[in-house]
């Protein structure tokens, strides 16, 4: 079965799952947390008949203070760097138990959830192993807030160029992060898995349908979700969704899918909004000059053009 034929019920505004929150209110995420919103939408798309595996991080710690838990489905947290490996074991177990008649007679998606540090840095090896082994019911969701927010806003390899963090600070000899954001979706796609997607909580239906597709495909799927962090980005909390929207319209975080190696841009931005509009609300970019913005825009546009090129040469059909 090809990834784009995987059967799933599309979420629309009309049939939106408005039942009880499966990430229950009462968790300790910051005010206006874009990652909590992304996670809430991811879980809402899935319901409760799946198994969630969390890496250590903001979403893990703010939802699981004993004896409380926000998770309405079976959930396990083991450590920081190994959500993909734990999920591999869970996935194998559910399949074997079903086969041996000791499990439930249904397909149980296993969904690993980690931040950008737990994915692009410390968890990369475990993730690569899991994608390569081609686990049948395996979904990996990276909730990317572009730094180690849980430990106090240190840079990760997913921190964007020139963003100021506590370990890539702006100073007399530094203009913030001096490396470009690691392209995790491309790394995931290089494993030849059936489904890779980027998503944003500002486009909630798009995000939820990508998650549903990821859970429906046979074989591993990787979804990279943009997760604005007002606290770490030095931004007003009410701007979390707007910043996510501007990231897409300015091309700095394009929304696209890779289905069986074919590309599709979901929210094309032929006439992008100015990057400065996206940067302006965020204190982590406060030091940028017009020249800096123009320099970044060149790279952002060239990355975007490459995606357009891939989508034209290898369209989903």
């Amino acid at each position: 079965m090809r990834a784009f034929e995987a059967p799933f019920e599309r979420v629309t505004n009309r049939n939106f799952p408005k039942g009880p929150e499966v990430l229950a209110p009462g968790h300790g995420a910051c005010q206006g947390c874009g990652e909590a919103l992304a996670l809430r939408l991811v879980l809402k798309a899935l319901g409760t008949e799946f198994i969630a595996v969390s890496a250590t991080g903001c979403m893990e710690v703010c939802t699981s203070r004993f004896p409380n838990t926000s998770w309405q489905m079976p959930w396990i947290h083991v450590a920081f760097e190994n959500a993909a490996a734990v999920a591999s074991g869970v996935e194998a177990a559910t399949r074997v138990l079903k086969r041996k008649g000791r499990g439930h007679d249904q397909r149980i998606p296993v969904v690993a959830l980690a931040g950008d540090g737990g994915t692009a840095d410390i968890g990369l090896q475990a993730l690569s192993g899991a994608l390569e082994r081609f686990h049948e019911n395996f979904v990996y969701v990276c909730l990317d807030n572009e730094a180690y927010m849980n430990t106090g806003f240190q840079r990760s390899s997913a921190t964007p160029f020139r963003a100021s963090t506590t370990t890539s600070p702006v100073g007399a000899c530094s203009k913030g992060q001096h490396t470009w954001k690691k392209n995790m979706p491309a790394i995931a796609a290089a494993h030849g898995i059936p489904y890779v997607a980027t998503a944003s909580p500002a486009f909630h239906l798009d995000l939820m349908n990508k998650i549903r597709r990821a859970a429906a495909v046979e074989g591993p799927a990787y979804v990279h979700v943009f997760s604005p962090c007002p606290t770490g980005w030095l931004m007003k909390p009410e701007l979390a969704v707007e910043s996510a929207r501007l990231a897409v319209s300015s091309r700095i975080f394009p929304l696209y899918e890779v289905l069986d190696g074919s590309y599709r841009i979901n929210r094309p931005a032929p006439n992008p909004t100015p990057l400065a509009d996206y940067f302006r609300a965020q204190g982590r970019y406060r030091h940028l000059t017009e020249d800096d913005v123009a320099f970044i825009a060149r790279r952002v546009n060239s990355d975007y053009e490459r995606l357009v090129d891939l989508a034209e040469r290898r369209p989903v059909s």
Partner: peptide
């Protein structure tokens, strides 16, 4: 809503915030 505090009031056609959990982020 990052905290999922709103409830669909159905026939009354609006969404009600549960102030026990609303953190006041303003989104």
């Amino acid at each position: 809503c990052p905290d999922g505090v709103f409830q669909d009031m159905g026939e009354e056609k609006y969404y009600q915030a549960d102030l026990d959990y609303c953190k006041g982020c303003g989104i």
